[in-house]
Nucleic acid binder design. Structure first.
Lengths: 222, 222
DNA sequence: AGCAACCGGAGGTGGGTGCTCAACTTATCC
DNA sequence: GGATAAGTTGAGCACCCACCTCCGGTTGCT
């Protein structure tokens, strides 16, 4: 019953230093290039050999998890904090803006938020803590007659995908450009008599399928 | 001064038949996989050898141009037809819906419309015939007080990119899903007192830069 | 029949990725 | 100040994919 990580002897000092360097480098590299970045990239950025990276982190997934766990938790915190907003509409738009800001600044975070090759247990743990607050906000905003009634929680990931996609392609040229289109979408979310019909909303499975098809690895595969 | 294509002797019958097969196959393959599709894919689909494709079309670009020229012209026609609409708003939304419908059904068309590796002369010829009608529609819809005033022509390509991106990733699962988000954006385009500020619009150069970064080849390169 | 035109597709070329391992270096402990 | 385990390194292997060439064999045309 002894926990493996607890009984493990501490790393030698140079090894521990390299481990930190690798994590730091991973944060930068994954932020810039997303989960598609190679561990060679990380090693070069960290100033260590590739072998060192592989010794410390058996898979890219393991490194991703360590490098981005904190930011993933932050996303949960943002969703929960949005519940404190005075209105459902404020909370929902606050969450959208915060999530876009974070994911626009870190492509790896965005890839993970879409469900990319993360340890499923951690991913599910995050997702199951983000969905309930957002569901609550959507319902509250609809009962307050500010959010249009034909929107569901499952639209939220799709909105984020669209906007962060713009963000990543325009980041070099106009790092703020995506805000323009997020605002346009937010204005489209407002209840209004002039709004057109939206058609059938995505199911939870639809969202998963789209996210999977959107990920870099899927694109490379076909 | 003799035109090379005019003085060229006609192809042998089997060669002409294969040429047509290749063009037909190219239309299917590029529609499904976009400009990233390989000429090997096209050859397999056409039931001919790769060598045959390369003899007939020295580069992928040449084949793309022949395979998609008609659809590109159709895009121009759609833009011009939108001018006939009763109001600027109707014309603009008609154009958006038509452009999205066509580009969602043909990924290659979408890639070319974004400016992917097409012979520059043809590309510019298309663009310079699409922009004026859209500019006119935007201005008309704004003077009619239906389109919000902080939108410019250069927003149109970005809107198309976002929506067609969703279209391509959701096509397998829910071929109509992108319409939902196009409608949301269209509702966001309507003039309204509750609309938020949009920030600085993209310049023409910004659009080019974003489109370039969005293309499959650019993603592979870095 | 004879010959130019045409076809096919194996394979050369060039690029990239994920990962290993044997030779070397360094921290730590007595 | 050794002895030793722990750590490091990066060339190199295995693999995959895309573009394109080349030439022995085939086919349509006159």
């Amino acid at each position: 019953m002894t926990d493996a990580t607890r009984t493990a002897r501490p790393l030698r000092r140079d090894a521990e230093r390299n481990r930190q360097r690798i994590i730091e480098a991973a944060r930068e590299v994954f932020a810039a290039r997303g989960v598609a970045a190679t561990l060679d990239d990380v090693a070069r950025q960290a100033g260590v050999g590739i072998g060192t990276v592989y010794r410390r982190f058996p898979t890219k997934e393991a490194l991703l998890e360590v490098a981005l766990e904190e930011k993933l938790r932050e996303q949960v915190r943002v969703a929960e904090a949005a519940l404190e907003a005075p209105t459902g509409w404020d909370g929902l738009t606050m969450f959208l803006r915060a999530a876009v800001r974070m994911q626009a600044a870190d492509r790896g975070l965005r890839d993970l938020a879409l469900g990319a090759e993360l340890s499923l247990t951690l991913y599910d743990r995050i997702r199951e803590r983000v969905e309930p607050p957002i569901t609550a906000l959507v319902e509250r905003a609809q009962s307050e007659k500010s959010l249009r009634p034909d929107i569901t929680v499952h639209d939220v990931p799709l909105l984020l995908m669209m906007v962060t996609e713009i963000a990543h392609h325009s980041h070099q040229v106009r790092p703020d450009l995506h805000d323009r289109y997020l605002q346009l979408l937010i204005d489209g979310l407002r209840r209004s008599e002039s709004a057109g019909a939206l058609g059938r909303p995505p199911s939870s499975d639809d969202v998963d399928a789209v996210a999977k098809a959107w990920l870099p690895s899927a694109a490379a595969r076909r």
